[in-house]
Simulated scan of single mutants.
Amino acid sequence: MLTFVGLGLFDLKDISVKGLDAVRRAEYVYLESYTSRMMGSSVSEMEAVFGKEIVLLGREDVEQHPDEVIRRARDGDVVFLTGGDPMVSTTHADLRIRAAGMGVATSIIHASSIASAVCGLAGLQNYRFGKSCSVPFPAKSWFPTTPLETIRQNLALNLHTLVYLDIQPDRYMRVGEAIAIIERMAEILETPAPSLYVGIARAGSEHPHVAAGTGELLKSVDFGPPLHILVVPADLHPVEHEYLRTFAGL
């Protein structure tokens, strides 16, 4: 059995009781370490609480070389840990499809996800979100503008956009960096940059930071340590506007 277990948003206390039981029963425990990070807990802390050795997996391990995980799941109980909720990332869905294709039983134990947490922290109505996008760190000869194109398509439909920020082994994109990159995309496309943003830091922690305002304003805000995420809102419903005014300083 291959069981996908969500860890939740911030630290090891976010895992469900059901998920914790699955981890403690498993013969092997893997942790996908590239789509999200549990900033409130280290791997060694998780191992101490879970009572299990945790094997870290990078993108290439999961997307190109998942054979060991699937083989072990064919013969015993394997847990595949993910930050947030499993299957939000297509790479996790692909692994489940591969396992099923090889005759391996699978199951999912859900957890809190940033996709729903932003609605609670920002007060933006969940059914008003369009397609999400990701802003990567630019490379020397690579500066994609697709994220802003997605944002503009959503705004044309009066839909909010959840913007995931790049996570790399040695750095985490911050709200101000992401806004600056989006503004550069707007210059390249010769189109206006978004006029309103909502920045969120450390969702799921005891002290998340939420701030709303113009790009110029939020670039000057100290959101503190990662993880950060960004939202580009469409036209605000009166309740959404009041929520952001009350809890995000709009």
Rank of each mutant, 00 (worst) to 15 (best):
S41H: 10
D75P: 00
I200E: 01
F80R: 05
H65R: 15
K131I: 10
G204N: 09
T35Y: 00
L162W: 00
P233D: 06
S44D: 13
F129W: 05
T214K: 07
N154C: 05
E60I: 14
V104Y: 02
G204P: 05
K13Q: 15
M185N: 06
L250P: 12
E190D: 13
P208T: 08
S107H: 11
E149D: 10
S195F: 02
V69N: 03
L12Q: 11
R74P: 01
G120P: 07
G19L: 00
D61I: 14
E242S: 14
D222N: 13
R24G: 09
V232T: 02
I114D: 02
A211I: 07
A201K: 00
H92V: 12
K219T: 14
E53A: 15
E68Q: 12
I229P: 08
A93V: 11
P194V: 03
A22Y: 02
A186H: 14
S141G: 11
A139R: 15
T150E: 07
A156I: 08
S112E: 06
Y243F: 10
P136L: 13
A99N: 08
K131S: 10
E240T: 13
R37N: 02
E187S: 13
V239M: 11
V175C: 05
S16E: 03
L196E: 00
H207Q: 15
P194C: 06
V210F: 11
T246V: 10
V221I: 06
D11V: 11
H207Y: 12
L81A: 05
D61R: 11
K52E: 00
F4M: 07
M38A: 09
G8K: 04
G8T: 06
H241K: 15
V49G: 09
V239D: 10
L9V: 07
P233Q: 02
S112G: 11
V239W: 04
P86A: 10
Y164F: 13
